[in-house]
Amino acid sequence: MKKGICIQKSPGQWKDSIAHYLNLDIRKYKKTFKKFNRGGLFLFFFFLILALFPSLFAPYPPTERFVSYEPPSAAHLLGTNDIGNDILSELVYGARISMMVGFATACISTFIGLMIGLCSGYFRGTIDELLMGFTDVVLIIPKIPLIIIIGAFLHPSIWTLILVLGLLSWESIARVVRSKTLQIREAGYVKSARCMGFSSFHIMVSDIFPNLIHVLMPKFMLTTASAMISEASLSFLGLGDTSMKSWGIMLSFAFSRGGFIRDMWWWYIPPGVCIALCVMSIAMIGFGFEGRDEKERRGMDAE
């Protein structure tokens, strides 16, 4: 982004020559970036860096123990919790786990949704009826109660949580992918590829899939956002993995282990605010992708 701005300021053919050599249209990229909310992008990268390099930001390791129930001070900016861990460090290390759950879930569900949507949109007919019928059936089942049951039977672990959440949140992706595939498969290049005798698999992968990325990206981001909220909710019920402290588990502990009754706002407000901000930044990026897609469609209609 910075590069684009700086090049624009310098006079002359800079822009054009670089665009020519790199085979990129910088103006187009700048436009793309403008669609995103700047605050959302900034927040997202902030949380991403926090998640990737927690040791740079956390003042102490998350398991180191001090005096418990301490109010905020210079040594512990957000105080300490019931077993004496520094809350700020926990918060920083929690970013990785919360975001990992969100993105891993979104990966699984995007993959399943893509497969089902692509197959039913491309083959149509009976396969479409069957797959979409199945999607509608699964769509009705309430996710969180089901996850609560499964989570109660299994031992709480972050991987089962990811797996179950991922296996249960692909329906809207499948629907979107299907309707887009139905559009694309009537396009000239798909028809000509079929005439040339390419296999269905090849057409799906190399002709249809690249055109689906536009609709997949916003869905991916929104799925991530809702998975993070689900994770926080389930952790609150005590179904999370207590050995890997995410923000949801911190909130749950603050509620069940006396942070709320002792009025320790520095314990329960920061994780909640972090969840809200992080989810919001991810959702905003999703909206950004969506907005771009809509603009493009409108442009096409106008033509």
């Binding site: 956002a225 909220i229 926080a232 909710s233 609150f236 949801g248 909130l251 509620f255 709320f260 329960y268 407000i269 909640g272 969840i275 809200a276 989810v279 919001m280 959702a283 905003m284």
Partner: peptide, 15 residues
């Protein structure tokens, strides 16, 4: 409203 929809409902309730 975007902020509200991104907050877990129980956190809002807690506040």
């Amino acid at each position: 409203f975007i902020a509200l929809s991104c907050t877990p409902p129980y956190f809002l309730a807690l506040l």
